[in-house]
Each structure stands twice: as C-alpha cells, then as structure tokens.
Amino acid sequence: MNTKNADFIWFDGEVKPWESVTVPITTHAMHYGTSVFEGIRGYSNNENLFIFKLKEHMKRLIESAEVYSINPRYTLSEMCESTIELLKKNNIKTSCYIRPLLFVGLHGIDLNVTRNSPSHLAIIAFPFNRYFPETGIRTCISSWRRINENSTPPMAKAGGNYMNSVLATQECKRNGYDESILLDYHGNVSEAPGENIFVIRNNKIFTPPLSDSVLEGITRDTAITIAKYFGYEIQERSISRTELYIADEIFVTGTAAEITPVISVDNHSIGNGQVGKITKEISSFYQKIVTSKIPEFKDWLTAVW
C-alpha cells in the first residue's frame, strides 16, 4: 500500500500508530521472502461488521508457518482476538480487508530458519470493496508455470511464492488482459496469480485438485460448499487448457476476488461472453452469506461490534 489506510496497526502484541511501525533493512523476510500471510475480508450490513472465516484464515496462517518452521508466537485465539481489537481501535465499520503478516526478523544472512529464529506478527486492516468488476474479467494463459510442490510448496501461503504471481500478472497486464491463468508443470490448469479457478460444462462444475499446484483456498472451499448446497455436481480433477476455451462458464475465487466471472480466455469468449447463470447464482449467494443474510451459514462469521 502506498498510502496510510488506517490509524493503527497491531504489531507484536500491541496496537500502535500506523507511522510508528517500522522494521530494520536487515529483516530476513525482506532479503529472502521468509514470510507467510493471509487475506481476510470483513463485510458490513446495517447491523454490524462481520469477519468471514476468521478462524479458518488464522489456522492456515499457522499451518503455513509450520511448513517453513517460522514461530507463529501467538495462539489461534490470540490472533483472532487481536484482529477484532484492531478493527475496534480503528473504528472500522465498513467493509474492509485484513492482512496478518508473520515474518522472520533479524536472523542474519544465513538461510537456516528455525522456530528459534526471531519472528514478528503484524495485522493491518483498511476499508476495501470490490477487487474485480462484477461484469467479469478477460484472462490469458501465462507463459510462466505455477510453482511446484517439489520446489516451493504451493499450499503454504508464503510471501516468496508470490514472485511467481508477480511475473504472471506483469505479463497479462502488458498484453492487455485483466488476469492470467497459470498451468502446472504437467500442463494442467492450476490457478490464477491470486485465485482458484472453476470451470462449468453441461451444468457440472470442475476445479483443479490440490495436487495440481493449487493453494487450498478458503473461498474455494466456500464455493464448493455453495455449489453442493444448490445441488450441482462438482468434481475436483485435472483440467486441460483446451477445456477452458470450450467451457460454458468459468469463475475464479479468492478473498479479494470473491466470486469473479471469467468472460474470455486467450480471446475465446466463454459462453456468450456474459456472466453465466450458475456463476451468478453462486456469487449472489456468497454475498448474502458474508453479509449475514443466510442463517444457516452464520457460524462462518465473526461479529466485530
């Protein structure tokens, strides 16, 4: 972020003024990408501000830290309570984005990070609405391949992983697209730089399995649950590039992206080039869930006020 977005940041157990939170230039994470993070959304309605799947996100943060032996320092409940504390301190009552960031500090220049290496936890939050347009996005297949389990674990939401996403995003933007889609090392569809992907053909929904270098997305899991709730058949299986071109509908999911329609891939129109019926149905229901309008799913929400 290139501007101040709130008055306070939660940092290492304290709520501090935004401008006061700084880290040394020798911070290990700045040199080697030794950080893990989460993206979490808060949604407002006329009654309250609700954090969507707060515990699930913080649990994944702790799991990502475990992969790289980074000491999370705080318990799951402490992380959740600190997030609520920060939102209240900033008096945030509108829809917002929350970013917990756990990183290695003054470890030195060697690479042997252990649970004894100094780590820090920061949580920031700021007002946030839509990331992509509701009308859908134009995508292209990236020439860059998605990181692979044999080199850099895709299931860990690590800062360093996103250099791969930066390259794919730069490429698609240079070529006039909104977003890219990455294939895995075997040529199967993996995911977008920051989103999971779903393909719909003949009223059946398909999404790549975790084995195809996919992040275990929390919004991905939500979309699967909603699809099953509506009675759609959904399968986790490998998807070829060609299937994207002949799909009836495609959508991507992510904390920032929510449920976003894909209206073209490599200039091939998806369906009629408009938001599809099933995508619209799932997206609309998702918005009702996160704003506490569906009682059956209220346990996914944490009220702030």
Rank of each mutant, 00 (worst) to 15 (best):
V36W: 06
K59C: 07
N45K: 04
L54K: 08
A65H: 10
A65R: 07
N71P: 00
L61E: 07
L49P: 06
K88C: 05
G42R: 08
R41T: 05
S77W: 00
N48R: 14
N48S: 14
L61R: 03
Y68G: 00
H57M: 06
S95V: 12
E56L: 11
P72F: 00
N90A: 03
I51H: 01
L86T: 14
F37Q: 09
L86V: 15
F52W: 13
E63A: 07
I98M: 14
M79F: 14
L61F: 03
M79Q: 15
K53V: 07
I62Q: 04
E85D: 07
K93A: 03
Y97L: 12
P72M: 04
S69Y: 12
R41A: 05
E56Q: 09
N91I: 09
V36N: 04
E81K: 12
S44H: 11
I70L: 14
F52K: 08
T94R: 03
R60G: 08
L87H: 06
T83C: 14
S77E: 09
P72Y: 02
T75P: 02
T94M: 01
K89W: 00
F50R: 08
E38T: 03
T83V: 08
E38Q: 13
E81A: 14
L61T: 05
K55T: 11
M58Y: 13
